[in-house]
Design a protein around this nucleic acid. Structure first.
Length: 476
RNA sequence: CGGGGCAUAGCGCAGUCCGGUUAGCGCACCUGGUUUGGGACCAGGGGGUCGCAGGUUCGAAUCCUGCUGCCCCGACCA
């Protein structure tokens, strides 16, 4: 049983906090709105980084690093950008005991400082495309924070690419969104909707923004990643031009895309249960824990000898931990690894030695089976794959159950309040009706899905003609 | 920024109203022993600027004033 974890049905928000505390993922830092990511939590981030970094490299990107400080006048060069970000920026006014001549913004994102450099790096079409990613921390002075989901400082990656044509930039934007979708679904086992953000929700300074949106277990939406086609806005603001093959000067086309430690929040809220964290095998640093059980010293020796034999060929196939601590009892260990979300737990004691069996427990379903010790390695590998796939399938099924088409505004309001979920509604494409929707229901248009079929209908809010449905939900 | 709550050992709290021995309890931690298949038990032990700064008083965790920080709920956001 899970002492100290509030049940989801009682208080979802406290459950989330409790899961993080129980798994020791993060602590509130002594600084307002900031968190300390503890080793267990950071290990998840490192797994995410490794997988994403490979996907980025496989698509031709290189890593670089730009400063955390951004001169004030850089921020002000792109009008929409500064308007969007200025209110949530931390600004350094003093250094070395003196007031600075020009304040330095702590990056909320790095477009401006990066494009100030791209100006020098790009002269010719031969310098394009420029495909760069940065792993960094950023600061956004949020009013309300929640561990992983929204903190004042957070870790992320931001890709910043430069291209010769709109089409290339657009292809890059779409490609990186696809990378995010693959990562979310294949590694995190989190199904995501892909689509376009509305004008109102798009990135400050972008032509348009694509996103991946996931449904959490309380049926609220979480934006899990964004990819922006920035057009020539930043190139023009920072005077970044290139000479094309015909010898003419043109402005460079830009993209940027990012995912953050918020993904850890998405992971928690998609899969975890009332007993704590549930990790998909691909993101578990240690996917298998083995707990030897004994009473006497002789038994201990015998069990550990068998464990030694059983685990001999595991190295290189999957990571595992043998929890042979003597100071806590088995029940304690079961509970501890459960809270930490380890996908597979194995228990082996004197009884199993005689029967040539071992107890195998799945974290995702709590299913407990006794299996033969023969072919154990293969069975574990297969089971890890099964868990990964089942977790994804369950999340897809959950989202499907909680996604509804609705064509009546009153019905929509009522159902949104009573059952939550994603709603596919018709919308006339106007910002004014989008605002009305949000003011009246607290729900927002999460995205205009790529796969939305052309379908004539009437806008849910205004009754005006609409060509296709959009996804609406309350969101984090 | 508005509303609410909190600040006492690593964590969770009592004590504060009504000032008065050496500030207490549970968990965790350390030592020894018995234990070990779903959060063990016994015994002993260590650990405190009572958020900070003033004030009142013979005496302040407790009363007064000011400050700071954190959490939750709303307006902004990955």
């Amino acid at each position: 049983m899970a002492k100290g974890i509030t049940k989801r049905s009682v208080d979802y928000s406290r459950w989330y906090t409790d899961v993080i505390a129980a798994a020791q993922l993060a602590d509130h830092a002594p600084v307002k709105g900031c968190m300390v990511i503890r080793p267990t939590g950071y290990a998840i981030w490192e797994k995410m980084q490794a997988a994403l970094d490979k996907l980025f490299k496989d698509t031709g990107h290189e890593n670089a690093y730009f400063p955390i400080f951004i001169p004030e006048h850089f921020m002000k060069k792109e009008a929409e950008h500064v308007e969007g970000f200025a209110p949530e920026c931390a600004v350094v006014t003093h250094g070395g005991g003196k007031k600075l001549e020009e304040p330095l913004f702590i990056r909320p994102t790095s477009e401006t400082i990066i494009w100030s450099m791209y100006k020098d790096w790009i002269q010719s079409y031969r310098d394009l495309p420029l495909l760069i990613n940065q792993w960094a921390n950023v600061v956004r002075w949020e009013m309300r924070t929640r561990l992983f989901l929204r903190t004042t400082e957070f870790l992320w990656q931001e890709g910043h690419t430069a291209h010769a044509t709109y089409e290339e930039a657009e292809a890059e934007t779409r490609q990186m969104l696809e990378v995010y979708r693959i990562f979310a679904e294949d590694h995190m086992a989190v199904p995501v909707l892909t689509g376009v953000k509305t004008e109102r929700e798009k990135f400050a300074g972008a032509l348009h923004t694509y996103c991946i949106e996931a449904m959490m277990q309380d049926t609220k939406a979480l934006q899990a990643g964004t990819s922006h086609n920035l057009g020539q806005n930043f190139a023009k603001a920072f005077d970044v031009t290139f000479q094309n093959e015909a010898g003419e000067l043109e402005s460079v086309w830009a993209t940027s895309w990012g995912v953050s430690t918020r993904l850890i929040g998405a992971l928690i809220m998609t899969h975890s249960d009332d007993n704590g964290l549930v990790l998909p095998p691909k993101l578990a640093t240690i996917p298998v824990v083995l707990i030897p059980i004994w009473k006497s010293d002789e038994e201990k020796q015998a069990v550990l000898r068998r464990v030694e034999n059983l685990t001999r060929d595991w190295k290189g196939k999957f990571n595992f931990k043998i929890d042979d601590r003597d100071n806590v009892r088995p029940g304690w260990k079961f509970n501890e690894w459960e809270k930490k979300g380890i996908p597979i737990r194995l228990e082996i004691g004197p009884r199993d030695l005689e029967a040539n069996e071992i107890v195998l427990v799945r974290r995702d379903t709590s299913q407990k089976v006794r299996v033969s010790q023969d072919n154990l390695t293969d069975r574990i590998i297969t089971m890890l794959d099964t868990i990964q796939a089942d977790m994804y399938d369950r999340a897809v099924a959950f989202r499907k159950e909680n996604t509804h088409k609705v064509d009546d505004y009153e019905e929509f309001k009522q159902r949104l309040d009573s059952e939550g979920g994603f709603y596919l509604i018709h919308w006339n494409g106007e910002t004014s009706s989008e605002e009305k929707l949000q003011n009246e229901t607290k729900a927002t248009i999460r995205c205009i899905p790529f796969d939305a079929p052309q379908e004539a209908g009437k806008c849910l809010i205004t009754g005006e003609p609409s060509k296709r449905r959009v996804v609406v939900a309350r969101a984090y």
